[in-house]
Design a protein around this nucleic acid. Structure first.
Lengths: 231, 231
DNA sequence: GCATAATTGGGCCGCGCGTTCCAGTTGGGT
DNA sequence: ACCCAACTGGAACGCGCGGCCCAATTATGC
């Protein structure tokens, strides 16, 4: 932040200065592979799988990212940027209540689109300074979103910022449990939670339909892996 | 199933007829150990851990319970009994809406009390006939609870039985994420969901307080295990 | 008491994960 | 063009898990 053209200032993919060209290429391949796997399988993917998917040796992966946590924070850096930016969009909305709704839905949609990100949002990584900075940035902005919506009279006074965390955890649970068997089930949850947040008489978007029983049944057949969502 | 005093008729712990006394004793020790571990760690506990905790050899465990699924269904047989019985209690309540509320809270409390059971309720085990029978038994009863509550005018018409599954998945997510760091966070979620289920003007129990920020932060520090609830 | 059949748990195997080492390869400055 | 340092991936190691076999132990019927 001192130099005029500081490359670390760029959000998103910092090319990690002082890395040989081929090394940087492999780094990208690893990140792409991890992004792919995390999105579909969740954060429980093994390091070896990532290396295999990326087509690099396990040693290369270990050299570039010493711990799983390091890899995770690198992979989700840009998503956290989007996460932090969603709150400024909400604040820019002239209708505070509409901004609130859009924010909630946007964040939960991000969780639904990436199973790994769903978990990231309900964890904290004290070591990852940049990532945690984004989180508190979003958090502080969300406080403002809340008070604005409450002052507009549409958001209940008993809504607190902790409720967002609870919602994110709940939504992560739905996303993890339904997976691609019932990919829209989370919308139902969010729709109902918005109802609970709103003051009586407030206008709400239509409640999304409940997932089909057939889809739910398919979602409930996951004999192998125990949700780490769970453990 | 032919004899007049069929021991398999007893709900809960069937002593598994035709088993030597010491074998039966070990069986109980295994079940107790698994119950203990599943409740705190979730279903991702390894078979070896269960054997270790029970103080028996791995072979003994394998001989008694061929697969993890078999062990799980045996461990949670009695909980499923309680689960199925909760719905009859709800039906016995003279106030349909009160019965509905109590049922939801009771079931979610069961999830909170046992992390493994939280996962069991959002999975299905086609092979476990007795367990699945309980589930559909509870399910059918719940349909009745719903229509009664809807006819009383307090439960919204757009509430469907699928919403219970969504709630159970969401609650499992909260329970898994908060663990013992914020053991009452789930109450907040359930309280808000009940708000969303109720028709306008319906009386509701007071909304439980939001979890303390400090507690939530502690809950979010779980670097090691990725929620198998998840994968 | 004693014979016998059931039960036990330790040991062995293969597998996948994560870490570390090392000989070979490749990029980039001169 | 050349050389050195950076970088690579395979291999080796330790660990835990799950499945299986087998000699030793123990309960039970007579």
């Amino acid at each position: 932040m001192t130099g005029p053209a500081d490359p670390a200032e760029t959000p998103g993919q910092q090319p990690e200065q002082g890395l040989r060209a081929d090394a940087e290429r492999n780094r990208e391949r690893i990140l792409a592979a991890a992004r792919r796997l995390y999105a579909t399988e969740g954060l429980s993917v093994s390091m070896a799988s990532v290396a295999r998917e990326a087509g690099v040796g396990k040693a290369t992966l270990s050299r570039r990212f010493a711990s799983r946590e390091e890899l995770i924070t690198a992979v989700f850096a840009d998503r956290m940027d989007a996460y932090a930016e969603a709150v400024t969009e909400a604040l820019a909305d002239p209708d505070p209540w509409h901004g609130f709704i859009c924010y909630i839905e946007a964040v939960c949609a991000m969780q639904a689109a990436d199973r790994g990100f769903a978990d990231v949002l309900t964890m904290t990584f004290p070591a990852a300074k940049a990532l945690e900075a984004r989180r508190t940035e979003a958090y502080n902005g969300f406080i403002e979103v809340i008070t604005r919506a409450q002052n507009s009279g549409h958001l209940r006074d008993d809504f607190t910022s902790e409720d967002l965390v609870v919602l994110l955890m709940a939504n992560a649970g739905v996303v993890a449990a339904t997976g691609d068997a019932a990919p829209d089930a989370w919308r139902r949850l969010v729709g109902q939670m918005l109802r609970a947040y709103a003051t009586p008489g407030t206008e709400l978007p239509p409640l999304p339909p409940a997932p089909a029983p057939r889809a739910l049944y398919r979602a409930m057949i996951r004999l192998s892996r125990p949700a780490p969502g769970t453990s």
